[in-house]
Lab assay of single mutants.
Amino acid sequence: STVKVRLGHLEVTLHNVSEEDVRELRELWKNGADEEDLRRWLEEWKK
């Protein structure tokens, strides 16, 4: 499914993403990950 995730002022649209992935991303964000960390996660996730 396609999910729009809003993290601060960063809005990311993920395609074919699982609930688990979204949860993981939100956890990262809650734990103080900055945009760099999130971008890195997204790069990994896209592979």
Rank of each mutant, 00 (worst) to 15 (best):
E19P: 12
E35A: 08
R23S: 09
R39S: 06
D21R: 07
E27I: 07
L10R: 07
G8Y: 03
R39P: 01
E11S: 12
W41K: 02
E11P: 01
H9R: 14
E43Q: 12
W45R: 10
H9K: 15
G32T: 03
T13M: 07
V12Y: 15
V3G: 01
R6V: 14
L10G: 05
V12C: 08
V12H: 05
D37S: 14
V22Y: 14
N16A: 05
W45S: 02
E24T: 15
W29N: 03
V17N: 01
H15T: 10
V17Q: 01
K46A: 12
L28M: 12
R40G: 04
G32R: 04
N16K: 05
D21L: 11
V22W: 11
V5M: 13
L7G: 01
V3W: 02
K30M: 12
V12T: 04
E20V: 09
W41S: 00
R39Y: 11
V5N: 00
K47P: 05
D37R: 14
W41C: 02
A33E: 04
L25M: 04
S1P: 05
E19N: 08
V17R: 01
K47I: 08
K30D: 07
K4P: 02
L10N: 08
L25I: 07
L14A: 01
L10P: 00
G32M: 06
L38T: 02
N16G: 11
S18A: 09
N16F: 07
L7F: 14
W41T: 01
N16L: 04
L25Q: 00
T2G: 03
K30T: 10
V12F: 15
E36I: 10
K46Q: 12
L14I: 11
R39T: 07
R26L: 11
L28A: 02
K4C: 14
R39K: 11
E43T: 10
V12L: 13
L7D: 01
R26T: 11
R6I: 13
E35H: 07
L25C: 02
D34R: 11
G32N: 09
K30W: 05
N31R: 11
G32H: 06
S18F: 04
L14R: 00
N31V: 06
K4T: 15
N16V: 02
D37C: 08
E19I: 09
K47R: 13
E20A: 12
W45G: 02
W29I: 15
N16T: 02
K4L: 07
K30G: 06
L10H: 14
N16Q: 05
L28E: 01
D34A: 11
V22P: 00
E20R: 12
E27R: 13
E11K: 06
T2L: 09
L14H: 00
E11Y: 11
R23P: 01
V17H: 01
K30H: 08
D34H: 11
K46D: 06
E43I: 11
W29V: 13
W29F: 15
L25D: 00
D34N: 13
V22G: 02
A33D: 03
L42T: 03
S1T: 14
L25A: 01
D37V: 15
S1D: 05
H15Q: 07
A33T: 04
T2N: 05
L42V: 15
A33L: 05
E43W: 10
K4Y: 04
H9C: 11
G32E: 05
L14P: 00
